[in-house]
């Protein structure tokens, strides 16, 4: 190329449009996205990208566990199947409902961000419900583990139980991180410094935990 001066590239209108709906930040003391500085004007907020990166890493991790399970089951003669504790289905329902309540919360907060509401209506209410359901899920998983232990199925009893504990405990730990995220969002909201993309990131993570659990349940049903 001979001449080398180029105009800076045009601001990506698609990305900007995505950010615009978060409002102009007039209401409720909630800070809008975007920054007056040029540097980030045309970039998505990093937390939107980051959450996909995190979800990708978690996916890879569970993919590794899954392939380990498939190989381990395929190569051995010592695999004993067992019936999953039925409390797992209840837990599944709880986790699915928690995703619904989180969506409700997100809508409330979105409209809260645009229009100034009276102080009486806390947009965090559905977040608390979600938080409660999340805790209930983890408690339910604990019940499932206790039931299996009562049946004499421990981590090292059989490869099938090893994988059961491995997958469910790893998932539960990730759900606990999600709960941490929700608490973070609630705290930010109560201080009126929540950003839209933080809420979205926490929500995406939470929904992903639900999808991951549905996948794990299917895997455990098919393979154990």
């Amino acid at each position: 190329m001979a001449t080398t001066v180029h105009e800076p590239p045009q601001i990506d209108s698609r990305r900007l449009a995505g950010e615009r709906h978060s409002g102009n930040g007039a209401g409720g003391g909630i800070v809008p996205d975007g920054d007056l500085r040029v540097a980030v004007e045309y970039s998505p907020p990093p937390s939107s990208t980051a959450i996909w990166v995190v979800l990708f890493a978690i996916t890879m991790m569970f993919a590794a566990f899954t392939s380990a399970l498939v190989v381990r089951k395929g190569s051995s003669l010592d695999w004993q199947t067992f019936t999953l504790p039925s409390v797992l289905y209840f837990n599944t329902l709880v986790l699915v409902i928690s995703s619904v309540t989180l969506e409700l919360a997100r809508r409330r907060i979105a409209s809260f961000m645009v229009v100034l509401r009276s102080q009486g209506e806390s947009p965090a209410r559905w977040l608390y419900v979600t938080l409660f359901l999340g805790v209930l899920f983890v408690a339910g998983q604990y019940v499932a583990w206790s039931q299996l232990r009562a049946e004499g199925l421990y981590l090292a009893t059989n490869p099938s139980s090893s994988f059961f504990y491995l997958l469910t405990v790893t998932h539960a730990l990730h759900v606990l991180c999600g709960l941490g995220g929700l608490i973070y969002v609630i705290r930010k909201l109560s201080k009126s410094v929540l950003r839209r993309n933080q809420l979205d990131a926490a929500a995406r993570y939470w929904h992903f935990m639900g999808i991951l659990w549905l996948y794990l349940l299917l895997l455990l049903r098919m393979k154990l």
């Binding site: 540097a39 004007e41 970039s43 998505p44 990208t49 980051a50 990166v53 890493a57």
Partner: peptide, 16 residues
């Protein structure tokens, strides 16, 4: 580290 590297490259580039 990777999380930071990827988001830095994708999201924090200056104008132009």
């Amino acid at each position: 580290g990777s999380l930071n590297f990827i988001t830095t490259t994708l999201d924090l580039r200056v104008k132009g």
